[in-house]
Simulated assay, not measured.
Amino acid sequence: MNTTGLTLAGLAAALVVLYANLRPWWAGNRDAKQLAAFGKGSALGIVSAVCPGGILGWAHTHSATAANEGGSRLTSGTTGVQTTAPVAHRALSGLTPAGAVVVVVIAFGVVLAWRAAGKKDKKRIVGGAFVASVLCLSAGVVGLLTWVPGTLNSIGNSIQGAL
């Protein structure tokens, strides 16, 4: 199995988790508050995709392995078909030291939110981080998010300049 990049099976795993989190919101009253926990986790997953190393970079890199293995079991067990074909890969890059400070603050905020959350919201935060990190392994999503490193760096530069 290809664990260095995302496969169709890994994409399936991320889409199942995404669907599981969006469906209650869609079927309910569509209150944005229902998506808050998932959104916080998604923010962490996106900023982890910008990190070239450290714990966040490691978690992002290894999210492909978890998604690919879980998705492979899911798709082959459900359909009997192996879905190990790779998905086009691209990476977010260009984080500066000032941008890294912003990433740390965002990550710390999400960790504090996770610690204060109830059991269901903790799962939603983890699910959001997983889905965003996995989707940020695909060329299409990375193409949509190429602005993220520059924005993090700009915010960090603004903070550094103000201080």
Rank of each mutant, 00 (worst) to 15 (best):
V110P: 09
T83R: 13
V101R: 10
H89P: 11
I159R: 04
G140Q: 13
L145D: 05
A116Y: 09
H89C: 14
C51H: 08
G94I: 12
L6R: 10
A100M: 09
A43S: 02
L163R: 12
D121W: 06
L112Y: 12
T84F: 01
Y19K: 03
L15E: 11
V111R: 03
V87Y: 10
A100R: 03
K123F: 01
L8F: 12
S76H: 15
V111M: 11
L35W: 08
C136R: 02
R30G: 10
G161D: 11
L145V: 04
V101L: 13
P97C: 07
A32I: 13
K40C: 05
G57S: 10
R115P: 00
A113Y: 07
G28W: 04
G57W: 02
Y19L: 06
R23V: 09
L92H: 05
A139V: 07
A66F: 09
V16N: 03
A162K: 00
L74G: 04
N68A: 13
A49E: 14
N157K: 13
K40N: 11
G71W: 04
V134Y: 06
R23W: 08
Q160K: 03
L22Q: 06
A107E: 10
V104I: 09
Y19F: 11
F108E: 00
A116T: 13
G140S: 13
Y19A: 14
A162V: 11
T83H: 12
A49C: 08
N21Q: 15
G127R: 09
S72R: 12
G54C: 10
G150N: 14
P149W: 12
T83N: 09
A9K: 08
S154V: 00
G45Q: 05
L56N: 06
L74Q: 11
V126T: 10
T65S: 14
D121A: 13
T79A: 08
R124I: 01
L11D: 05
G140E: 14
I125M: 04
G161P: 06
T78D: 00
V17D: 04
G28N: 06
L6Y: 10
A116N: 05
S93Y: 07
T65Y: 06
L144D: 07
H62N: 08
I159T: 01
L74V: 04
A116M: 06
A20L: 05
I159G: 00
V131H: 08
D121R: 15
G150C: 13
G41K: 00
A107L: 05
N21K: 05
L163P: 00
G57R: 02
C51P: 00
K33E: 11
L137Y: 01
Q34A: 14
H89F: 14
V126P: 01
P149E: 06
A64S: 12
F130Y: 15
L145T: 01
G94Q: 02
